[in-house]
């Protein structure tokens, strides 16, 4: 034993590092992120003489990265819970478009605006529109959940179907209709704090904090892990498996509506054909890079946040380094494969 202890102290740090690296996905993902941030900082060109303006550029760059990814970040959080429950949700992008369209119809200042025709304007209209959008997103997610649990259809198939359904119906109804978003709606995302527009980041992180608490401390949060890890055991432990699954999809729908609200308030419009398309894959990639296991049972909120950041920072870095645009997606693919290979190693250790 004494010999062992001596060895341990000699290679203490190395040992600790290897152990952490090989057992905790968050640790390795975190290190990868730090390395990228260093590279990114370096490539922004650190200049000691004009520290002030350098710092502003650096911060601004970061605020931009985070703000641009707040929407996908929220969706990725929902996605990671779905994957933790051993499911998948391909419909998130289409749900976002559907909720966005509903939101814009409600707040439209033009002759067809729903709330304005009911005589509701200004702040009350905005509040009502937000609440209705959230409820609508929850409803669409819940619909996925009901088809999966009651209908007994695999999640991949259900959400592939609703992915097509939600977007197609939205596009049909919104043909030739260009709602005008009232100016009072835009500050939701564009309100400036100091010199920075960082509202979406604040929503994202606040919601992440709530979800973190939910995943660690609530019955529902822990039951998600139980259901994803071993559905039979969970069922025989009195967990209402169907209810847990349904609620996971519903909550994802809710998070998607937050993303839709941010999107609409940021730019005041929405492209129904393209907005949110590919978000499902971005979200899955972020969740997986963050250590969520595709077979369910494993994953964390913090891991998913790191996963979103890694992909975002890498995009930014490739941009700064001048990597040709068509090649950038290849790097995303490589990162994804690297992350999964690492997790596979971690599982066997």
């Amino acid at each position: 034993m004494q010999k062992n202890n001596k060895q341990n102290s000699e290679q203490g740090f190395k040992h600790w590092f290897i152990k952490k690296w090989s057992t905790e996905p968050i640790f390795s993902t975190g290190i990868a992120l730090i390395v990228m941030i260093i590279l990114q900082t370096w490539s922004l060109g650190f200049d000691y003489d004009s520290f002030g303006s350098w710092f502003f550029t650096w911060t601004n760059n970061w605020i931009n990265i985070l703000r641009n990814n707040a929407g996908v970040g929220l969706i990725a959080l929902g996605m990671s819970f779905v994957i933790m429950s051993a499911g998948i949700d391909l419909s998130v992008g289409s749900t976002m478009v559907a909720v966005g369209a509903a939101l814009m119809m409600l707040i439209d200042r033009g002759p067809n605006g729903i709330l304005i025709n009911l005589g509701i304007e200004g702040i009350p209209a905005i509040l009502i529109a937000i609440l209705v959008s959230l409820a609508f997103g929850y409803f669409l997610g819940n619909l996925n959940g009901i088809l999966i649990t009651r209908g007994g259809i695999p999640p991949f198939v259900v959400t592939l179907a609703t992915m097509k359904l939600y977007r197609s119906v939205t596009q049909h109804f919104m043909q030739g209709y260009n709602p005008r978003v009232p100016l009072e709606f835009l500050p939701i995302s564009n309100f400036q704090i100091g010199r920075f527009r960082m509202m979406p980041i604040i929503y994202w992180l606040l919601i992440a904090a709530v979800l973190y608490f939910m995943s660690k401390r609530t019955t529902f949060g822990r039951q998600i892990i139980a259901v994803g890890s071993n559905e039979r055991s969970a069922n025989l432990s009195g967990v209402n498996v169907k209810k847990v699954k349904r609620r996971v999809y519903a909550i994802t729908g809710l998070l998607v509506s937050f993303a839709a609200i941010i999107q609409v308030s940021r730019i005041g419009s929405m492209d129904y054909a393209n907005a949110g398309s590919g978000y499902e894959m971005e979200a899955i990639a972020a969740a997986v890079v963050g250590g969520t296991s595709m077979s369910g049972g494993r994953g964390t909120v913090i891991g998913t946040l790191l996963g979103v950041l890694i992909i975002a920072v890498m995009n930014n870095l490739l941009n700064l380094l001048g990597v040709p645009p068509f090649l950038r997606e290849a790097f995303k693919g490589l990162i994804l494969i690297g992350a999964v290979l690492m997790q596979k190693k971690q599982k066997t250790v």
Binding site: R217, T218, R222, S229, R232, S233, R298
Partner: peptide, 27 residues
């Protein structure tokens, strides 16, 4: 049917009673 391998000993032992003892969903 009995254990859940991704959860620790304590969680495996308390899964049944989470909903019985929780306060508004908080364990």
């Amino acid at each position: 049917n009995g254990i859940i391998k991704d959860m620790d000993i304590f969680e495996n032992a308390s899964i049944v009673t989470w909903p019985l003892f929780d306060n508004f969903g908080i364990i």
